[in-house]
Design a protein around this nucleic acid. Structure first.
Lengths: 151, 151
DNA sequence: ATAGTTGCAAAAGCTTTGCAGTATG
DNA sequence: CATACTGCAAAGCTTTTGCAACTAT
C-alpha cells in the first residue's frame, strides 16, 4: 500500500529543499536529498546515529560527517527540528507540514508523545514583551511515567 | 558585606544534604559539602567544568570525577537542577528555596534570564490527565535575542 | 575548470569508568 | 577495619574537523 499523502509531502519537501539550496548557492547533491527523504519516511524522534545506520543498511551509503552536515542544513531551513529529551543526545524529527507541538517523555521506557497547547504561544508572546526579547523558538518537554505501564 | 540570608540558606542546605546522606547511608565527605556550598554561592547557570575550575582556583581541590558524582547526587535529592540550553552541555543551578521558574535564552550573547508563569502548571496537569502520564517535571526554554543589544 | 561536498579517520568536548589509595562510620 | 569515596587517567560517546578525492555547476 502506498501512502499517497506521504509521497506528496516528500515531493513537496524535496522541491522546497532544492529551491533553498539554489537560493543560497549550495549544491544539490544526491546525499542531501537521500537524507531528507529518509527523514520524512520516519515518524519517530531519531538521533544522528540511528539515521546513519538506517541509511547504511538501506540502499544508500553516506558518511557520518554528511549526515551531521545535512541535519544542520535541514534544521537551518526549517525542514527538520532538533530536540534534546533530557540526555546529551540530539534528537530530530521532520518539521514541514506539522503544526507546532511539544513533547511528553516517559523517563521509564523512553516513549515520546506529542501534544499541542495554545497557552505556549501566549507565554512566548507575553514573556518576549516583558523581558524585551524577540522570542524565536521554544522547547517544552514534560517528563514523567506512563500510568498504564510502559511497553 | 556579609549576605546573612545567603549564609542562612547555605547552612540550611548543608544540613539538609547531611540528613539526606545519613538517611541513604552515604558518606559525609568534605568534598561533597564543599561542592554544595560552592554551588550555592553562585547565582549563574554553570556547567560542570566551570564549577571544577572555580573550585580548583579557590581553596578547594577536587577531581572532575567527584564534581560529576556530586552534581548527580545533588540533582537526585533536589538541591540542584540540571538544564540544557540548546547545546549538548549540561548546565546546573541551585534549587532549594527557589520558586519554580523557566528560562529565556539569548542565542546571540548566551544570556539566561528566568521567568515564572502559572500556565505551565496548568499545562502539566492537563496533559498528564489527557495522556495518562504522571508528570514529574518539565523544562521550558524560550530562545530569542535581546531587543536592546547584547552585552 | 573551480569550488563546494563528500568520506574517512583523527581529534575534540563532555561525561563515565576502572582501579589503587584514602578516609569515613 | 570494612568499604564507600576520591583522584587520576583512560575510555566512551556524540559531534566536529582536516584533508585528499570527487563532482555539481
Amino acid at each position: 500500500m502506498v501512502d499517497t499523502a506521504l509521497e506528496d509531502t516528500i515531493k513537496e519537501v524535496l522541491q522546497q529543499f532544492s529551491n533553498h539550496l539554489e537560493k543560497t548557492n549550495q549544491r544539490k547533491t544526491p546525499e542531501r536529498f537521500a537524507i531528507l527523504e529518509e527523514i520524512y519516511r520516519r515518524t519517530d524522534h531519531f538521533d544522528a546515529e540511528a539515521l546513519y545506520i538506517h541509511m547504511k543498511t538501506q540502499s544508500y551509503r553516506v558518511s557520518r560527517a554528511t549526515v551531521y552536515n545535512t541535519l544542520e542544513l535541514l534544521v537551518s531551513c526549517n525542514l527538520v527540528t532538533r530536540h534534546q529529551f533530557g540526555s546529551n543526545l540530539a534528537r530530530y524529527e521532520r518539521a514541514h507540514g506539522r503544526r507546532q507541538h511539544d513533547h511528553i517523555i516517559c523517563t521509564n521506557c523512553g516513549k515520546v508523545l506529542e501534544f499541542c497547547d495554545p497557552r505556549i504561544q501566549q507565554i512566548k508572546d507575553m514573556m518576549g514583551e516583558l523581558m524585551n526579547f524577540n522570542v524565536e523558538s521554544h522547547s517544552l518537554n514534560l517528563y514523567g511515567t506512563c500510568k498504564d505501564g510502559c511497553e
